[in-house]
Each structure stands twice: as structure tokens, then as C-alpha cells.
Write a protein that binds this DNA or RNA. Sequence first.
DNA 1: TGCCCCCTGCAG
DNA 2: CTGCAGGGGGCA
Length: 288
Amino acid sequence: MPELPEIETIKLQLGKVLVGQRIVNVIVNNNKSVRGDIGEIRGRRVIGIRRMAKVLLIDLDGDLTIAIHLKMTGQLIYDDGKGRVAGGHPTGDFAGELPSKHTRVMIELTSPPATLYFNDQRKFGWMKIVESSKLKVESFIKDLGPEPLELKKDEVIKLIKLIKKSKRAIKLVIMDQKIISGVGNIYANDALWEARIRPQTVANQISVERLRILLKKIHLVLREGIKYGGATAADSKFVNLQGMGGHYQDHFRVYDRRGLPCLKCQTEIKKITLGGRGTYYCSKCQIV
DNA sequence: TGCCCCCTGCAG
DNA sequence: CTGCAGGGGGCA
């Protein structure tokens, strides 16, 4: 569920509290949420937090990394041991009680006795222990396209060429992690509205100029998502490290706005299904 | 390139 | 009760 801005939000928060701490113990409630030898992380010290696309990376000493993918309903919540983290959350399943019935893994740390909770209602998410030096060859990393927030000029040119070759709907193309990484359904919908492109338009029929605009708009909405601490939509389970929701949902352009007036022209926002996912657009503004 | 599937919970 | 949910791997 969380996309690049949501993972970035957690990354920034984790960096402040986790680095320097030592892992004392790990408790696994659901084996399918864990890959690799989780026991290996006991006794290791956290030396850094990174993000690659939607994957969160907790680097430990001794060449180990915990890679975490929250998929649709994953949450990471931190309790510093001095009582409750921030109170409950209106839309998430975190109501103040930890561990909850959706807690799949607990990582206990020094700073006594802090705990990092990995909650995941639908159990799609995972936590994988890998050798840091071999991270690059992991399938969930090696196939990732470029990061949309760090595109160099030559990468933009390459990317546009790649998009121009595709006969798929543009929305599916920008959500394809092999093409460009980190964009999911919310930000894809909103970026396409900003760029005035219909989600179902075949990618190779869009001009280079318009695709350049699209890349800029992707950058814009992702940055805004980060600024507002991610999005917690009505049906979303995203919470930050304190168990609190984000605020980008107050700035949705079209996502989750079926039947509501377009922010530019007041036309009712339409909802269709594309690639099995809810897709929103304004039929008047999005004409490309 | 499109479809099914992994799961659970909740709105309609 | 069915359909749907911000992800993405595996399959034909």
C-alpha cells in the first residue's frame, strides 16, 4: 500500500531513533512475514537506514541488512520504551494496543526496552535478511527502474525512450517498478491529472514533450506526498513510525474522488478500472 | 502483456 | 453476500 513518499516518511523517522541501537531480540509471530535467517540480526547494531523505491533498508553491522516491503497493509511502529508511542489512529488498525493481532514481527532494541513492531493485516508484506554486500543482486532490488526524485538528464532521455516503446496504458507504465520505481496507484493517478494525460492513453502515442511534463509532475506529487508525511486514505492502513496517519489525502487531485468536482474545472471525476486497480481522472482536463 | 494469486477486513 | 483495497510475483 505505501508508495515512495510513505516509505520515505518512515525512513526519515527511523533514522532519528534507530541508528546506534543494538538489536537484543526478535519475536516472529508469522513465519511467512519473514525471509532469510532472522536470528542472525540478534546482537547487531543499526548503522543506517535507507530506502530504494518502496523497499526500506535497515543496515546492521557485520554486513547484514533488513529489507522490508510493506506491500498493501504493512506498518512499522516504534515504541521507545518510555510508555506509549503517540496515541491511536483514526483509520489504521493501530488503536493504541501493541502488539496487536496484526503484529507479525517484533524487534527489541536497547534504549531499554524499545521495540519496533511490524504489523501487517493482509500478510503480503515481508522482512528479509540479506548480506548488505549482496543486496544489489536481490530480485526486489536489481530489477528496479530509476528513482523518480533523482533523475539525471541522460536518465530522463533513456526513460522517455523506454516509455515511447510501450503499447500499454500510460498509468500501467509509470506504475511498473522496472520502468520507474516508487510510483504506486495514488501518485500515478494524481501525476497524470497534473500532466493532463488520460490514464488509459497508450504510452507510445504520447509526445516526448508531454512525457517530460509527466516526469516533472510525478516528481511534484511525490515531493508533496513526502512534505505531508504520506497519504492515509479512507481505506488505507498507512501510519508513520508513531502510528499516526499522513496528510497528503487532503491534497488528492483525483485519487479517491469519484463523483467529486475536478479541482480545476468542476467536472465530476470518473472512476474506471485499469490493470485491476481503481483509476481516477477528469474527462475534461485530461485530454491527451 | 494480461490475469490470477497471496491475505484479511470492511463498505455497499 | 460480493467486490474491492495505495503491491507485485508468477504464470500462460
